[in-house]
Amino acid sequence: MQLKIFALTGAAALMLAACTTKEKQTQDGTTNTATGGVVREEAKAETETPPVTPMPAATVIQSQPGPDGSQVDLLSVKVTGDILTVTLRCSSAERYNRETIRVAQVSVIDDATSQRIGVLKDNEGNAMVSNLSRSGSPDNDNMMVDCTSKPGVMWAKFPAPPATSPTVSINLPGVAPFDGIPVQR
């Protein structure tokens, strides 16, 4: 019986000896740890990632007074393929200032030909504008925008004027016109 206990104690001691830890410094400064024949390498601390750079503030092409004391800023007039996208921002000092803009009255004028271009419609007949509010008739559809203390962004898509038209004018009901705006292509 004593022989069995001695044998078990000896086996346990050998197992513990096999599990001892040996550390060794490598040339690159990391530490290798050997445990029972398994080598583990400590990971280097990663260098800090640079902070996220915020996007630059939108450049305003032109500003016009809007309804109810609001201000409407034209942010971009850009052609992609055959589509002209107009992006605007509405802001107001009023706490609760939400604007409803009748889509049928939103247009772009091709300055080279004096042609009025209306808002594009998708395959289902929906006007391609931000925050579309449908009504019984497409003539009464509205684009909604929240112009409270946090500026609201709105956009509308139009068929692109020909490349020979370098500028357009943009008309929104209740907002002074944006005239002679260069088209970005």
Results as ranks from 00 to 15, higher is better:
Asp122Tyr: 13
Pro182Glu: 02
Pro56Leu: 04
Ala112His: 10
Pro182Lys: 08
Ala127Phe: 01
Arg116Gly: 06
Val77Thr: 14
Lys78Trp: 02
Gln2Asn: 13
Gln184Ile: 04
Lys44Ile: 12
Gly81Phe: 09
Val153His: 09
Lys157Ser: 13
Thr59His: 10
Leu75Cys: 01
Ala127Tyr: 12
Thr21Gly: 05
Asp141Val: 04
Trp155Asp: 12
Met55Glu: 14
Thr47Gln: 15
Gln2His: 13
Thr20His: 12
Gln105Pro: 00
Arg89Cys: 02
Trp155Val: 05
Pro166His: 00
Ala13Tyr: 07
Ser130Thr: 08
Gly66Ser: 06
Leu16His: 00
Gly37Tyr: 05
Glu48Gln: 11
Arg102Trp: 05
Asp110Phe: 01
Thr47Met: 14
Asn140Lys: 14
Gly29His: 04
Ser130Val: 00
Trp155Pro: 05
Leu14Gln: 09
Ala176Pro: 03
Thr53Glu: 04
Gly118Cys: 01
Val119Ile: 09
Gly174Arg: 00
Ser169Tyr: 03
Thr35Ile: 13
Glu99Ser: 14
Ala112Gln: 14
Arg40Tyr: 15
Asp146Leu: 02
Pro50Cys: 02
Phe158Val: 03
Asn140Thr: 15
Gln27Tyr: 02
Ile5His: 04
Ile181Tyr: 06
Thr100Met: 13
Thr47Asp: 13
Ile170Pro: 06
Ala93Glu: 15
Ser63Pro: 06
Ala163Gln: 15
Ser92Asp: 08
Lys24Arg: 07
Ser130Lys: 01
Gln115Arg: 14
Ile117Leu: 12
Leu88Tyr: 13
Pro50Thr: 09
Glu41Gln: 11
Gly69Phe: 05
Arg40Ala: 15
Arg89Lys: 11
Val183Lys: 02
Pro161Gln: 08
Arg102Glu: 07
Val168His: 09
Ala58Gly: 08
Val129Cys: 06
Ser114Leu: 07
Thr26Tyr: 03
Arg134Ser: 00
Ser130Met: 01
Gly136Glu: 07
Lys44Gly: 08
Ala34His: 13
Pro151Gly: 04
Thr33Trp: 09
Thr87Lys: 10
Thr85Arg: 10
Pro54Val: 08
Val52Ile: 15
Lys22Ala: 14
Asn140Ala: 14
Ser92His: 07
Val153Ser: 14
Pro177Met: 08
Gln71Cys: 12
Asp141Glu: 08
Leu172Cys: 03
Cys90Phe: 02
Gly174Ile: 00
Pro159Gln: 08
Thr20Asp: 11
Pro162Cys: 03
Ala17Trp: 14
Pro67Glu: 01
Leu132Glu: 01
Leu88Cys: 07
Leu132Ala: 12
Met1Ser: 08
Arg95Thr: 09
Leu172Trp: 02
Gln27Ser: 13
Pro51Leu: 11
Thr53Pro: 03
Val108Ser: 01
Val39Asn: 02
Thr85Leu: 03
Gly36Lys: 11
Ile117Cys: 11
Asp179Thr: 15
Cys147Val: 01
Pro50Tyr: 03
Glu46Thr: 07
Ile117Asn: 07
Gly10His: 06
Ala12Gly: 05
Thr100Pro: 06
